[in-house]
Amino acid sequence: MKTKMLFLSLCLAALWSCKGSKDLQSFIPGTYIDYARGEYSESSDTLIIGEFNEIKDSYPIIRKTGFRRIGDGKPGRLEHAAEKWLGIWDGESGSIQVPKNSKIISFYPDSGVLLLGTREYRKIAGGN
Protein backbone atom coordinates (compact mmCIF):
# COMPACT_ATOMS: atom_id res chain seq x y z
CA MET A 1 0.00 0.00 0.00
CA LYS A 2 2.82 2.43 0.85
CA THR A 3 4.41 1.70 -2.54
CA LYS A 4 1.17 2.59 -4.35
CA MET A 5 0.83 5.85 -2.40
CA LEU A 6 4.44 6.77 -3.15
CA PHE A 7 3.96 6.02 -6.84
CA LEU A 8 0.72 8.04 -6.94
CA SER A 9 2.42 10.96 -5.19
CA LEU A 10 5.29 10.93 -7.68
CA CYS A 11 2.87 10.86 -10.63
CA LEU A 12 0.93 13.82 -9.23
CA ALA A 13 4.14 15.77 -8.63
CA ALA A 14 5.27 15.10 -12.21
CA LEU A 15 1.92 16.26 -13.60
CA TRP A 16 2.00 19.37 -11.44
CA SER A 17 5.49 20.33 -12.64
CA CYS A 18 4.45 19.83 -16.28
CA LYS A 19 1.43 22.08 -15.76
CA GLY A 20 3.65 24.86 -14.41
CA SER A 21 5.90 24.62 -17.45
CA LYS A 22 2.92 24.76 -19.83
CA ASP A 23 1.49 27.80 -17.99
CA LEU A 24 4.83 29.56 -18.31
CA GLN A 25 5.12 28.63 -21.97
CA SER A 26 1.65 30.02 -22.69
CA PHE A 27 2.79 33.36 -21.16
CA ILE A 28 5.99 33.66 -23.21
CA PRO A 29 4.82 34.57 -26.76
CA GLY A 30 4.25 38.30 -27.12
CA THR A 31 5.84 41.73 -27.32
CA TYR A 32 8.06 43.12 -24.57
CA ILE A 33 9.54 46.62 -24.32
CA ASP A 34 12.27 48.42 -22.41
CA TYR A 35 13.17 52.10 -22.43
CA ALA A 36 16.30 53.61 -20.95
CA ARG A 37 17.47 57.21 -20.82
CA GLY A 38 20.70 58.63 -19.49
CA GLU A 39 22.64 61.87 -19.71
CA TYR A 40 24.26 60.92 -23.03
CA SER A 41 21.74 58.63 -24.74
CA GLU A 42 18.28 57.13 -24.84
CA SER A 43 17.23 53.76 -26.20
CA SER A 44 14.13 51.70 -26.72
CA ASP A 45 14.26 47.96 -27.10
CA THR A 46 11.48 45.66 -28.31
CA LEU A 47 11.52 41.86 -28.14
CA ILE A 48 8.90 39.99 -30.15
CA ILE A 49 8.75 36.33 -29.14
CA GLY A 50 6.81 34.03 -31.46
CA GLU A 51 5.00 30.79 -30.78
CA PHE A 52 6.85 27.73 -29.46
CA ASN A 53 8.15 25.33 -32.12
CA GLU A 54 7.78 21.85 -30.60
CA ILE A 55 9.93 20.20 -33.28
CA LYS A 56 12.92 22.49 -32.69
CA ASP A 57 12.10 23.05 -28.97
CA SER A 58 12.60 26.75 -29.64
CA TYR A 59 11.08 30.22 -29.97
CA PRO A 60 11.68 32.68 -32.82
CA ILE A 61 12.69 36.09 -31.44
CA ILE A 62 13.00 39.47 -33.16
CA ARG A 63 14.83 42.25 -31.35
CA LYS A 64 14.28 45.82 -32.56
CA THR A 65 16.36 48.62 -31.10
CA GLY A 66 16.16 52.38 -31.42
CA PHE A 67 19.04 54.48 -30.15
CA ARG A 68 19.66 58.23 -29.95
CA ARG A 69 22.75 60.02 -28.68
CA ILE A 70 22.25 63.19 -26.65
CA GLY A 71 24.85 65.93 -27.15
CA ASP A 72 24.75 69.37 -25.53
CA GLY A 73 21.34 68.48 -24.13
CA LYS A 74 19.89 67.96 -27.60
CA PRO A 75 18.80 64.59 -29.00
CA GLY A 76 20.63 63.40 -32.10
CA ARG A 77 19.52 61.31 -35.03
CA LEU A 78 17.52 58.16 -34.24
CA GLU A 79 19.32 54.97 -35.25
CA HIS A 80 17.55 51.63 -35.73
CA ALA A 81 18.70 48.01 -35.71
CA ALA A 82 16.92 44.66 -35.90
CA GLU A 83 18.10 41.12 -35.25
CA LYS A 84 16.54 37.68 -35.55
CA TRP A 85 17.37 35.14 -32.88
CA LEU A 86 16.48 31.53 -32.25
CA GLY A 87 15.85 30.92 -28.54
CA ILE A 88 16.21 27.37 -27.23
CA TRP A 89 13.71 26.42 -24.52
CA ASP A 90 15.22 25.10 -21.28
CA GLY A 91 12.33 23.44 -19.45
CA GLU A 92 14.40 22.72 -16.36
CA SER A 93 15.15 26.38 -15.65
CA GLY A 94 12.04 27.78 -17.39
CA SER A 95 14.17 30.08 -19.50
CA ILE A 96 15.21 30.62 -23.11
CA GLN A 97 18.86 30.43 -24.11
CA VAL A 98 20.04 32.37 -27.17
CA PRO A 99 23.18 30.60 -28.46
CA LYS A 100 23.95 33.37 -31.01
CA ASN A 101 24.99 35.79 -28.27
CA SER A 102 25.05 33.60 -25.14
CA LYS A 103 22.10 35.40 -23.57
CA ILE A 104 19.55 33.92 -21.19
CA ILE A 105 15.96 35.17 -21.06
CA SER A 106 14.07 34.58 -17.80
CA PHE A 107 10.32 35.08 -17.35
CA TYR A 108 8.20 36.37 -14.45
CA PRO A 109 4.54 36.00 -15.49
CA ASP A 110 3.13 37.29 -12.19
CA SER A 111 4.67 40.72 -12.84
CA GLY A 112 4.52 40.61 -16.66
CA VAL A 113 8.29 40.89 -16.95
CA LEU A 114 11.19 39.17 -18.66
CA LEU A 115 14.86 39.65 -17.93
CA LEU A 116 17.46 39.62 -20.69
CA GLY A 117 20.63 39.55 -18.66
CA THR A 118 20.00 42.40 -16.19
CA ARG A 119 17.73 44.39 -18.51
CA GLU A 120 14.01 44.29 -17.59
CA TYR A 121 11.32 44.24 -20.28
CA ARG A 122 7.57 44.72 -19.71
CA LYS A 123 5.05 42.66 -21.64
CA ILE A 124 2.66 44.85 -23.63
CA ALA A 125 0.86 42.36 -25.91
CA GLY A 126 0.24 38.69 -26.74
CA GLY A 127 -0.02 35.43 -24.85
CA ASN A 128 -1.78 35.17 -21.52
Rank of each mutant, 00 (worst) to 15 (best):
Leu24Thr: 08
Gly94Thr: 05
Tyr35Leu: 09
Ser41Trp: 13
Arg63Pro: 00
Gln25Ala: 06
Tyr121Pro: 00
Gln25Ser: 05
Tyr121Ile: 01
Glu39Tyr: 10
Gly50Val: 06
Asn101Tyr: 07
Ile88His: 06
Phe52Ser: 03
Gly94Tyr: 06
Asp72Pro: 01
Leu78Tyr: 07
Gly66Leu: 08
Asp90Met: 03
Leu116Glu: 04
Ser17Ala: 13
Ser111Ala: 11
Asp57Ile: 03
Ser102Asn: 15
Glu51Thr: 14
Pro29Arg: 07
Ile70Gly: 02
Arg122Tyr: 12
Asn101Ser: 10
Gln97Asn: 14
Arg37Gln: 14
Asp90Ile: 01
Ser58Glu: 09
Ile62Cys: 06
Phe27Leu: 07
Phe107Thr: 05
Cys18Asp: 08
Tyr121Met: 00
Cys18Phe: 08
Leu115Glu: 06
Ser41Val: 04
Ile70Gln: 06
Ser44Leu: 01
Ala82Ile: 08
Asn101Pro: 02
Asp110Ser: 14
Ser102Cys: 02
Glu120Arg: 14
Lys74Met: 11
Cys18Ala: 15
Gly87Tyr: 03
Gly87Ser: 07
Glu83Cys: 01
Asp110Met: 03
Lys103Met: 14
Gly20Phe: 04
Leu12Glu: 04
Arg119Ala: 07
Trp16Pro: 02
Gln97Ser: 13
Ile33Val: 14
Arg37Leu: 10
Ala14Asn: 08
Leu114Gln: 04
Ser21Cys: 13
Thr118His: 09
Ile124Ala: 04
Ile61Trp: 06
Lys100Asp: 15
